[in-house]
Every structure is written in structure tokens, then in C-alpha cells.
Amino acid sequence: MSLAARWRDSALVVAAILALWQAINLVGGDNLMTSPLATVQHAADMVGQARFWPHLRETVTAYLAALAIAVFGGIGFGVLLGAHRLTGEVAEPIFVALYSIPKVTLYPVILLAFGLGIQAKIAFGALHGIIPIVIFSLNAVRQVNRTWLRTARTMSLTPMQTVRHVIIPATVPEIFSGLRVGAALTLLGTMLGELFASQRGLGFLLMTAIDLHDVKTIMAIALLITLFSVAMNAAMLALDRRLHARF
């Protein structure tokens, strides 16, 4: 598909969503869903207010911390487990099983362990993101073509050179795919963590708005989060495609 065609298709999808959104507003009224235009205006107002920023900062801080744990922990664990064949074979089904557990059920445990502060959100976000990153990294290392490693030996590469010039370039595309999935799930986990038993953050604003039946604010926050996550995913997907292009 050409670039122009891809842009055109994306524009069509966005237009369709906006049309549907507007239609729901026309049929159900402002108490069901505010119109796209009103939502954008309210989002802009909120961003302009000083009291909004501590909440945003809280969410961003929690997300970045959770992401750092998920990324470093996930790649570290995945590479270690993947490097040894037997441990990889034992660990993979365990992580796949963990992946399929609805982790919300573990939230009470997280709360008991970490309390009501930012730590619980970070832990919950990291818990969501780390598992796909482990699985992807583990498979990336396990599936490094053995002929490439043998080639490295025939050229008398040192172990460090083999890691740097063969194993890393061979595994980066697959690990990056894991990061893309992991980043999206970390955001999900962090937001879920904020929805319950928290006193700050976008998730807290959202819950407060739900209690007050403040539809405008609900829609505005949903819009901000959606824009952020779609933009992040699109950027990572584009990079992901480029990394995989030659394999």
C-alpha cells in the first residue's frame, strides 16, 4: 500500500469515528456524550488550568517509572531466560499463562503490598507491561539463527563482538515488537491503577468526574489519553516496521 493510500485510509477512519461520535451526541444529547467540538474545547480549557498539571504530572511520572521497570526488567529477564535453552523452554509457558490472567484480580494484593500512593500504580503498570516484553525478548534470543553464531565463530569474533555485532542486531527488531506491546499495556495498567483508590492523576480525575456525572470532563480525559496512546503506538509501529523490513 502506498503512503498516500495509507494516509487516506487513516483519514477516512478518523472521519468515520468523528461522524459516529457526533451522531451519538445528536441522538443521545450532552448527558450521554458531549460533541467532538465541545470535548476538544473542554480538553483545551482543562489543559490551560493550573490545577490540572499536578494530576498529569502524577500520571506521567507513574507511567514512565512503570515503563522503565517493565522495559529493563522485561528485556533483562527475557534475554537471560532465552540464552539458556532449558530455562527458556520451562519459563515461556509460565509467562504465557501469566499473560492470560486478568491482572485486575491481583489489584487488591498490589494495594495491600504497596499502599494507596503512586507505588501501587507503578507496580500495577509494570506488572502489565513486563510480561509481553519478557516473552518477546525470550523468543528473540531463542530464535537467533544458529548459522549466524557459527559464522561469528568462523571469523574468530570475541564473545563481546558476537553480542554487539550479531546477537544485538539480530534480536532488536523482535524485542522492539515486545516493547511496543509492553508500552501499550503499561499504560493500561497504570490507568487501571489510578482508577481505584488513588488521590491524584488522570485516572483519579476520571473517577471523580464519573461520580459527579461530569460527562464533558470524562470525554475530555478519554480524548487526551486516546490521543497520547494512538500517537505513541503509531510512532512505535512505524519504527517496528522499519526494523523488521530487512528480515
Binding site: 548459522t147 557459527r150 568462523t154 574468530s156 542486531p169 539480530a170
Partner: peptide, 28 residues
């Protein structure tokens, strides 16, 4: 260890997909 002066070509495609042909040949 593979001594200097011995070259091996394998049955499977062993070219590195992340390098150009020139870089592949220059690799060693």
C-alpha cells in the same frame, strides 16, 4: 576455535539481513 586461514561456507543462508551486501562482505 577456528584458526586464522580457514574459511567456512554453510549450507544455510548465513548472510546478515541487517547489513548491506558490501557490509556483509566487509564484516570479518
Amino acid at each position: 576455535t577456528v584458526p586464522d586461514g580457514v574459511g567456512v561456507v554453510f549450507q544455510e543462508d548465513a548472510s546478515f539481513p541487517w547489513l548491506t551486501v558490501w557490509e556483509n562482505v566487509a564484516f570479518g
